[in-house]
Nucleic acid binder design. Structure first.
Lengths: 148, 148
DNA sequence: CTGGATGCAAACCCTTTGCATAAGC
DNA sequence: GCTTATGCAAAGGGTTTGCATCCAG
């Protein structure tokens, strides 16, 4: 089962935040966005729909959703922020980022999960979230001549 | 053995880049910076010395050094970029980042290294570099009341 | 000499914010 | 009604860039 808009709305309410038409719309769109999206891409989607939401509102809600654990920031190499939805049952995963073509490949790796839990125990660190990003060349780009 | 300024300068030359007084100065300072630094902190250090280097020059050199594998970008949660030197013998490591006090704790974990190599083999991905960042609460902050 | 590097300052661009208005609860 | 959320537009702040000058190779 994946996260529903209502689930997120309930979380907002529990956190003492008000449920507005704009927030409802933003949440519904976020759940339909591709794996990784930026604030700008989200805004573009919102403007394709009937509901208009201002940049400010989107920018104000996203950090709250991060705090609530609904989305998390990923793919930091890029110039602007990217987010992805944290599914209920979704395993933590990492990203393989191709330096040549920009493609982002998601991967899951239980061994990494286990290692991270071990590190946190060792350092008595309370683990909230983590990101693992590997940059390099994807299979296709390894064969191609460099172009920079 | 850790990286010397001359090593980096040789790498620049091999890459066809010119060796200028400014670049020499930047490189020397980078090697003396604390574990993680921003472009701004680097500039402050440079201005403490006798040699003046402009912001533009620093901002133009850093990406080249990333490409050459001399430094890498880390600690992406922050609003601006941070870098760290990639030592010759330095083990890859990750960062534990405290959400409360902002402290950054480096850790090494061979298990993570192994897992990453496995993932790259599986996806036929050529590994250039990677970062692993775990956010949460450090030991000290776990006991303190929340203040946000 | 000649093309790459520097410095200055202005431009960029994503993101944040002040303030008046609107609307949850 | 009281307080929070929204929208607009302007500010913010790190980073990039155009252009004239400089200098390493």
């Amino acid at each position: 089962m994946s996260l529903s808009a209502q689930d997120v709305i309930n979380e907002l309410q529990h956190a003492g935040l008000r449920i507005t038409t704009q927030r409802r719309s933003i949440i519904e769109h976020i759940l339909r966005m591709p794996a990784h999206f930026s604030a700008d891409e989200l805004l573009a989607e919102l403007h394709n729909g009937q509901m208009e939401v201002s940049r400010a509102t989107v920018y104000r809600l996203l950090p709250k959703l991060v705090q609530l654990g609904v989305v998390r920031e990923v793919i930091y190499g890029e110039e602007h922020r990217h987010y992805e939805v944290v599914g209920e049952d979704q395993q933590y995963h990492g990203h393989l980022i191709c330096e040549q073509c920009g493609r982002v490949i998601d991967f899951v790796c239980p061994a990494v999960e286990g290692a991270i839990i071990g590190v946190c125990r060792e350092y008595r660190f309370w683990h909230h979230s983590h990101t693992l990003e590997i940059t390099g060349l994807c299979e296709d780009c390894q064969d191609q001549p460099l172009n920079n």
